Simulated assay, not measured.
Amino acid sequence: MRKELINILEIIKLGEKLKYELRHSWLSNGRQESVAEHTWRVSLMAMLIEPYLKQEIEISRLLKMIIIHDLVEADAGDIPAFDTLTSLDLKEQKVKNEIKSIEKIRDTLGDDLGLELYNLWFEFEHKETYEAKVANALDKLEAQIQHNEADVSTWLEIEYEMSFMMDKHVQFDSVLKKLKDMIEEEAEQKLRNAGVNVEAVKSGVLNR
């Protein structure tokens, strides 16, 4: 048991890195967001939305999936979605880095727990199960909520378009679609208040 606890403690210490690994998102008080803060709020969203989903869900598996999905960034770092959207090379590099990291986590634990976390990470990535689809949707929605809460001066221009590119992540569940619509409406109002031509932005999304 001592050996197993040593391995578990090593992964817990790995998690500390997520407290200072920063994302390209800013808080409403002007401070940059950490990966750990993003993961925590995605988990909160899962807990709050679970009773309203149209299909019964295994909440413990969903929460594990959310937590383990971002843990790889302690080693691999965070490559923003807008970078992988515009660069196939970066997208491939991100996948390679993260697979290497989840393999390291699996091998560190070296038992059924390590294999469970490894499988959960790939379940999230493949987005085939209902839980994985929910986890992915909440991950994307939380990021947009955070953008909506930040000063619009922190947004890159490509993030204007990304505010209207979440449909594909929520189509499988009507409740998540409604939540997405509300978050999108907030983004649209924020952009209009900043003098952004929202119609032109939406036109760019349609032409992608």
Rank of each mutant, 00 (worst) to 15 (best):
L14P: 12
M182A: 08
T39Y: 08
Y160S: 02
E16V: 06
K168Y: 03
D70H: 03
G195W: 11
K140R: 15
G30M: 10
L176R: 05
F172I: 06
S60I: 15
L88H: 05
R192A: 02
Y118C: 00
A194E: 14
V72T: 14
Y130N: 02
N207V: 05
L115T: 06
V170P: 11
N193G: 00
D70N: 12
L141E: 06
K180T: 04
D167F: 07
D112V: 08
D78S: 14
M45P: 06
I68C: 00
V196S: 00
V35L: 15
Y130R: 02
K127E: 15
E116A: 02
I145D: 08
K3T: 13
L179Q: 05
L179D: 01
T154C: 04
H169Q: 10
N207Q: 13
Q189K: 15
A74R: 09
E157Y: 04
N148W: 10
L88R: 14
W121R: 00
T39E: 09
D112I: 12
R31S: 12
D89G: 07
D75F: 15
I8D: 01
I105W: 11
F172W: 07
L176K: 06
K190W: 06
D181M: 08
F164C: 03
L71S: 03
Q144Y: 03
S87Y: 08
E50A: 14
N29E: 07
N7A: 15
H24M: 04
W40T: 12
S153L: 10
E128N: 03
N136H: 08
E157M: 08
I105G: 06
G15L: 08
V201E: 01
N136G: 03
K177S: 04
L85K: 14
G204I: 02
P51M: 06
D70P: 07
L88I: 12
I59N: 01
D83Q: 13
F164M: 04
S28F: 10
L88T: 09
M45A: 09
E161G: 05
D83E: 15
E131K: 00
D83N: 08
T86C: 12
L206S: 14
E92T: 01
K91R: 15
S43Y: 09
I12E: 11
L85T: 12
D167R: 10
H38W: 09
I6E: 14
L179I: 12
D111A: 00
N193V: 12
L9R: 11
W121A: 04
K177Y: 06
S43G: 10
E4M: 01
E116V: 02
L109M: 11
L115F: 04
E131M: 01
L179H: 01
I8C: 00
L14A: 03
L14Y: 06
I183N: 05
R61I: 03
M47H: 09
K64R: 13
E185M: 13
L53N: 12
M65V: 05
E56W: 01
P80S: 09
A137S: 10
M1L: 02
M45W: 11
S28Y: 09
K64A: 05
Q171E: 14
S163P: 06
E73N: 14
E128I: 11
R23F: 08
L88K: 13
L88N: 07
N119G: 02
E184C: 07
A36T: 08
M165R: 05
F172L: 09
K133G: 01
Q144S: 01
A187P: 14
A194Y: 14
K202V: 07
E184F: 01
W121K: 03
Y118I: 02
N148F: 13
E56Y: 06
T154M: 07
V152A: 02
I158E: 10
K3H: 13
L138T: 10
